[in-house]
Structure formats: structure tokens, C-alpha cells
Design a protein around this nucleic acid. Structure first.
Lengths: 207, 207
DNA sequence: GTCTATACGGCGATAGAC
DNA sequence: GTCTATCGCCGTATAGAC
């Protein structure tokens, strides 16, 4: 995406992203961020006044990146089956590129839930109601009848959870069953797709 | 479960559970645990030598509680459909009773992945291969053919994720769509059951 | 076993020269 | 804008009386 330009402020921000995402707010050290940026600790306070401010910049960036923009995909003119398939593919691919984002977001949101409100205010979010669209497709018989919120949460769950639980999966579950983690993640995209479509598309097996 | 007996050590452990689970290793303060236990800070170090030791006791306890013991449920003589249904119900009910366990476990495992190995060694875990059982049911035509690991991970994902993402769900998604969080969690159990069964039981819709 | 008092180190933040 | 040096707090851990 945005190559780190050479301005000091952006160097700091890139370094902060790296360290905060890896260690979290409480685990990160201002010294480590300064080292990573190749500058001095005092400069951090010159550009961003304190640790909290610097952290919020990083968190806001991460938050916007992980919020699924369903509307864009769902406003295309494909069939509902294709839309769901495309969404899952896009979301899992994004998560594969930034696998540490989900646990970072949720850990910090749990530590201090107020940061969610803060981010939501600063960046106008679009409360596009995908719900109505889903209900419409159910009316038409293109989707199984179920609660739309749960349908959405279910799809996101299946995409995100393996990234959240990665340490657990790798050291416990998969290892225990003799499964190669790399292979597991390789085939996951297709497995999720068919699992979801079987659950939400009427008579999907026969199609 | 175990009522807090009056021995000081257990009072400390109960207090530590409460504080560590709520704040995490880095957010917890020894002083707060001491206050919660109604004793002095120095006593914490008398019983458990340092913060790390006390934390590990709490983490191990939480870990054992959250590890799904599928084997017990899956070794019953019910049909596969009933087994899955019972498992989902048992697991979601357990999580509802201890909703902060999942994010606690995963946050700490991410902060220091080695604690997983530590816990696994201290408490002999049973690597019961549920995989073979699943494959057998697929052979018999009672389950849709898919990768067994992913089937298991999918089911767990749907159960656990809403608890992990609760702050996000409540402040962003649900609020955005005008959904009452309490109502959402109330109906979730049934929604997950039918969603999973539709995905894994052949011709479930017609049954 | 339980307490009070204190030592010790780490880290965020600031002062101030250049 | 960038640096060095240092302050001051906070939190873990220990010393030692009872």
C-alpha cells in the first residue's frame, strides 16, 4: 500500500504499527519504537505527544483496515451465491496478509472498550444496512431463512477465528491430530466457502 | 463449582482469577489482587513467589476449563446429529457462564506463546483423535464429506467468536443495525445449531 | 503466617543544548 | 527538528518486626 515515505513522522508511524501490533499497547516500549524508527525516544513525544496518542493512531489505522466493507461487494450485480463467495475470499485473503490484526484489535478493545467509540467518532462510518438486502434475498428464495445478523456474524466468525486462535490451533489442535498448519491454512478458504454455501443456499448440495 | 474455601491460598487464587481474567497479565496489579483477597501484598509473594507464578496458576485453570472435551460427548451412543447439537449447546452454555475466558486465553497466548507449552506439559492432555470418528461417519453417509479438521474448527469458531468479539459486536455491528445485544445472544444457540447442521448433515433441509 | 516499610528497576515524559 | 540527560512515578519484590 502506502510506501513509507521518508518524512520522520511517517517513519515513526510505521515503526509504531510494527511494534504495537506485535506487542500490544501494554507490551510495547517507546524505546523499541524509537529504535525501530531509527530515531530518538524524545522525538516520539515531539510528533505524538504521548504513548496513548501514538497508539490511537495505530489502532485507528488497524481498525479501518479490518472492518469488512460488505456494502462494496454486496452492491455488485452478481448472484447472492457469488457475492458471499467473493466476500469470503476477499476477507480471508486480507487477513492472510495481516494475520495479527484481529487479535490486536480485540485485545485492545477488551483492555479499553472506549477506544472503539473514539475511533468510530473520528472516522465517519457508514451504517449501511446489509440486513435489508439479506431479507430481500430470503424473500426471493435465494437464501435460507434465518436471522440476518447471525448469518453475517457466522460468516465473519469462520473467516476470522483461525487467525485469532492461531497459537492454540498450531500448538494444540493441529499438532495433536498430526495436521500440518501450513496445509490447513492453504485449504481453509475453499472449506469455508463450501461450508457457508451449504448452510445458507437452499438445496446447495444438488446444484 | 468449588466454593472458595477459607484457606488463604485459595482466597488468593480466587482473587487472582478474578483480576487476571478481567485485566490480563500486564493490566493486573498485585495490589488489586491483594485488596480483592482482603490480605496484604506481601502475602501474595509468600504463597506464590512472583507475579508470573501466580498468573500461570490462573492461566492453567482457565485453559483446562475452555478446552472442549469433545471425546466425552462424542463417545455417547447418540446419532451424529444429536452429538453435534449437544456439543454446541454444552459449549455455548459454558462460554455464557464464563464469557471472558476466550479472550483471556487468546490474548495471553499471543503475548507469550510459550505458556501454552508450559500448561500442556504440566497437565497431561488426551490427544483423542476425533478425526477418525468423523471420517467414519462420512463413510457411512451420515456426514457431508469435508476436511475433518476444518469441520471441527468451524463448529468451535461459531461458538467462540461472538464472545471474543463482544465489544465490537455490541458497539459497532449490532448497534449499527439496531439489534438488541441481549436478544442476539439469546437466540444464538439455536441459530448456530441449525446453521451447522445444514452445513454438515446431508439433506438436512428435507429431514 | 501476616503485617509495614522500603528497596530496586523500568519506563514514560520533560528539560534544555545544539 | 533532533539529540542527551534526567526526572519522577509506579509496580514488583524483599527485609524484617510481630
Amino acid at each position: 500500500m502506502t510506501m513509507d515515505t521518508n518524512t520522520t513522522e511517517e517513519q515513526i508511524l510505521e515503526a509504531a504499527k510494527k511494534v504495537f501490533r506485535a506487542k500490544g499497547m501494554q507490551g510495547a516500549r517507546m524505546q523499541e519504537i524509537a529504535d525501530e524508527a531509527g530515531i530518538n525516544k524524545a522525538l516520539l513525544h515531539y510528533y505524538f505527544r504521548n504513548k496513548e496518542k501514538l497508539f490511537m493512531a495505530v489502532f485507528a489505522d488497524a481498525f479501518l483496515q479490518i472492518m469488512p466493507n460488505m456494502d462494496q461487494i454486496f452492491s455488485s450485480d452478481r448472484s447472492i451465491e457469488e457475492k458471499i463467495s467473493v466476500f469470503i475470499e476477499a476477507y480471508i485473503n486480507m487477513l492472510s496478509a495481516y494475520p495479527d490484526l484481529p487479535i490486536f484489535i480485540l485485545s485492545e478493545a477488551r483492555r479499553d472498550p472506549t477506544i472503539l467509540f473514539e475511533v468510530l467518532e473520528k472516522s465517519g462510518i457508514k451504517p449501511v444496512s446489509i440486513t435489508e438486502f439479506i431479507l430481500l434475498e430470503m424473500e426471493k428464495g435465494n437464501l435460507v431463512r434465518m436471522n440476518p445478523s447471525h448469518m453475517m456474524v457466522n460468516i465473519v466468525s469462520l473467516c476470522v477465528f483461525p487467525f485469532l486462535a492461531r497459537p492454540l490451533l498450531e500448538t494444540v489442535i493441529l499438532k495433536k491430530q498430526g495436521v500440518d498448519p501450513a496445509e490447513f491454512y492453504n485449504i481453509r478458504l475453499e472449506e469455508v466457502k463450501t461450508f457457508v454455501l451449504r448452510a445458507v443456499i437452499p438445496n446447495y448440495s444438488e446444484s
